[in-house]
Design a protein around this nucleic acid. Structure first.
Length: 474
RNA sequence: CGGGAUGUGGCUCAGCUUGGUAGAGCGCCGCGUUCGGGACGCGGAGGUCGUCGGUUCAAAUCCGGCCAUCCCGACCA
C-alpha cells in the first residue's frame, strides 16, 4: 500500500506514483506510453498556460505533417547526424514499397524549412513566428514514463528573421518569457537558465539555451530549450530573401521546444512519501470535498452541505467524492496520492457548527474554517500553495547546489548525484568527457552571458573560460 | 547492440529442487454489517502456467529453440 521510499529507490517511487495516481502506464507498444485522463488533464493545463504565453509573445499556431521525405532530413549535416540514430523510417505503405522513404518526425526543422523556402521572398515576409503542438518520435532504448518515451508530445516553435540580432533576441526571449515563466509560475519549479556547451547543443544549432531544474534525487532535468541557428537551416534548405538594401540574404532562424517530459518533472520536484503534490495551476482538481456520514440520517444533510460548499468555490476546479463504497480514510489517502492541493472534510459535526475542515497537501496540515469564509479561504490557499511549493523546491535546489574547492570534491559531489555543482571550465570537450566517464555527470549549462574568468578549470587546471553548472541528468 | 535476470488469474508472487486434480494476497462481482485516516464477514467469477518442440504412461515442474519483458552499459526532450 505504501510507496517505495524516495531516498532508497527513487526510480521505483517515481514509477509507482505515476501509475497509482493514474497519470500514465506502459502501452502494448514498447517504449510508448498511454497517458491516462488524470495525466492528460495536467498536460492540458500546462498546454493552456504555455500556449497563451506563446501567443502573447506574437506567435501563431500552425501544423506540419508527421511524415516527410528522408532526403529533407539529410540536408543539414549536423542535424541528420544527430538524429539518425533515433529516427524511424516508413518504407512501405499502400501495399507496396515507397519510392522514397519517409521519416516519422523526430523534430520538424527539415519539413518546415523546405516549406519556408516557398513562404519567404522578401524582408517584408519576415519575421515568421510560428509554433506547432505535435507528437514526435525518437527511438529509445530505455524508456521511462514521461521522461523518456519513444513518442512524446511537445510544442515546437520555428521562427525566421531578417537579422542575427533579432533571431538571437527571439531565442533568449522564448527562454525567459515563455519557458521560464511557464515552468516557474505554473509548475512551481525553480529553474536555472543558461547556454549549452558545444557538446550538449541541439544538432544544427549555433547556440542552445536551456532551463535546468533540480529533481529531489539530486539529478537535473532539462525543462525547455531554445536554439539559435544562425543561417544554418536557411542555407541548407536554400531559403533566401531580398533585403532592404536589395541584396539577397539567408534569414536567421530559431527553434524551441518543451515537452510532456515536464510532467515527469513536476512529479520529481514536488512529490513526497504520500505521492504527488500538484501545484494548483496544473491540478485537474484543485479542491476535493469528502463527505463523512454514518447511516442514512446524516447522509442527505452532509451531501447538501457539500454541494453548497462546492457552489461557494466558484471558479475553482472542485470534485465532490461521494462514492459510497469507499470510506473517508481511503479517500484521504487516494487524493493525497493524486496530489490534490486542498481537501475539505464535511461531516455532521461541521454541518452543525457551520464549519469545514480544510487540509492542505503542501504542508499536510488540517485547519477548521468558518463555513462562510471557505470560498475566500480556498482561493487564497491556491496562491499560497502555489508559492509554498515553489519556495520549498527553491530551498531544496539551493541546499543542493555546491561550489567545490577541488577536483576530488567535485568528483565526489557529482558521482553521488548531490545536486548542482558550480565549477569553472576551460571550454574543452575533453574535460567534459572525463567528467562524464568518471562521474556520469554532464555540463548542464553555462552562464547565460559569458563572464570574465580568472580561475582555473576544475578538471584540467588550465585557464577557465566559463562558469559551468554540472550535474547528473535525466 | 553487449552483460545479467525473469516469464504462472487484472496486479504482486508461491508452487519447479524430488513430474501425478493449479494456489495465496491484493483487485473484481453479489449480499450484509460498517463509515471522522487505506473496514470486516459470507458467497462468487476469473488461469490453454510466454511460445514451439522434445523426453515421459503423465510436464507449470526435466531438456532444447524462439519470443517478450525487466535491470546494468553506449544515445536522448
Amino acid at each position: 500500500m505504501s510507496l517505495p521510499d524516495q531516498s532508497v529507490d527513487f526510480p521505483g517511487w517515481y514509477q509507482e506514483v505515476v501509475k497509482r495516481a493514474e497519470m500514465a502506464e506502459n502501452s502494448v507498444t514498447r517504449g510508448a506510453m498511454v497517458i491516462k485522463p488524470y495525466g492528460y488533464a495536467i498536460w492540458e493545463f500546462m498546454q493552456q498556460g504555455m500556449d497563451r504565453r506563446i501567443k502573447e509573445t506574437g506567435h501563431q499556431n500552425l501544423y506540419f505533417p508527421l511524415l516527410y521525405p528522408l532526403r529533407l532530413l539529410e540536408k543539414e549535416a549536423d542535424h541528420v547526424e544527430g538524429f539518425t540514430p533515433q529516427v524511424a523510417i516508413v518504407t512501405h505503405a499502400g501495399g507496396s514499397k515507397l519510392e522514397e522513404p519517409l521519416v516519422i518526425r523526430p523534430t520538424s526543422e527539415a519539413v518546415i524549412w523546405a516549406t519556408y523556402k516557398n513562404w519567404i521572398q522578401s524582408y517584408r515576409d519576415l519575421p515568421l513566428l510560428y509554433n506547432q503542438w505535435a507528437n514526435v518520435l525518437r527511438w529509445e532504448m530505455r524508456p521511462r514514463l514521461f521522461l523518456r518515451t519513444t513518442e512524446f508530445l511537445w510544442q515546437e516553435g520555428h521562427t525566421a528573421h531578417e537579422t542575427e540580432q533579432e533571431a538571437m533576441a527571439e531565442s533568449k526571449m522564448i527562454l525567459s518569457d515563455v519557458y521560464r515563466t511557464t515552468v516557474e509560475e505554473d509548475f512551481a519549479m525553480p529553474v536555472i537558465p543558461g547556454r549549452k556547451s558545444a557538446s550538449e547543443r541541439f544538432p544544427g544549432a549555433q547556440e542552445t539555451f536551456t532551463i535546468e531544474a533540480l529533481m529531489r534525487d539530486g539529478k537535473a532535468l532539462q525543462a525547455g530549450t531554445s536554439h539559435y541557428f544562425g543561417q544554418n537551416f536557411s542555407r541548407a534548405y536554400d531559403v533566401k530573401f531580398q533585403s532592404r538594401d536589395g541584396t539577397e540574404e539567408h534569414p536567421y532562424s530559431t527553434s524551441w521546444g518543451a515537452s510532456s517530459r515536464l510532467i515527469g518533472g513536476v512529479v520529481m520536484v514536488h512529490g513526497d512519501e504520500k505521492g504527488l503534490r500538484l501545484p494548483p495551476k496544473l491540478a485537474p482538481y484543485q479542491v476535493v470535498v469528502v463527505p463523512i456520514y454514518k447511516g442514512d440520517q446524516d447522509k442527505a444533510k452532509v451531501l447538501d452541505a457539500c454541494n453548497a460548499v462546492a457552489k461557494m468555490l466558484d471558479g475553482l476546479r472542485v470534485k465532490i467524492d461521494d462514492r459510497e463504497h469507499f470510506r473517508p480514510g481511503y479517500k484521504f489517502n487516494e487524493w493525497e496520492l493524486k496530489g490534490v492541493p486542498v481537501r475539505l472534510e464535511i461531516g455532521a459535526r461541521e454541518v452543525d457548527a457551520d464549519e469545514v475542515v480544510v487540509y492542505r497537501r503542501d504542508l499536510g496540515e488540517k485547519q477548521t474554517e468558518r463555513l462562510a469564509e471557505v470560498g475566500e479561504r480556498a482561493n487564497s490557499l491556491m496562491a499560497e500553495i502555489q508559492s509554498t511549493l515553489f519556495d520549498q523546491a527553491e530551498v531544496f535546489r539551493d541546499e543542493h547546489t555546491h561550489v567545490p574547492e577541488s577536483y576530488e570534491e567535485f568528483n565526489e559531489l557529482l558521482s553521488s548525484a548531490a545536486g548542482f555543482v558550480r565549477a569553472p571550465w576551460c571550454g574543452e570537450a575533453a574535460c567534459e568527457e572525463k567528467v562524464k566517464a568518471e562521474t556520469k555527470a554532464t555540463n548542464r549549462a553555462l552562464t547565460l552571458e559569458p563572464e570574465a574568468m580568472t580561475t582555473a578549470c576544475i578538471v584540467c587546471n588550465n585557464d577557465a573560460k566559463e562558469m559551468a553548472l554540472w550535474a547528473q541528468a535525466y
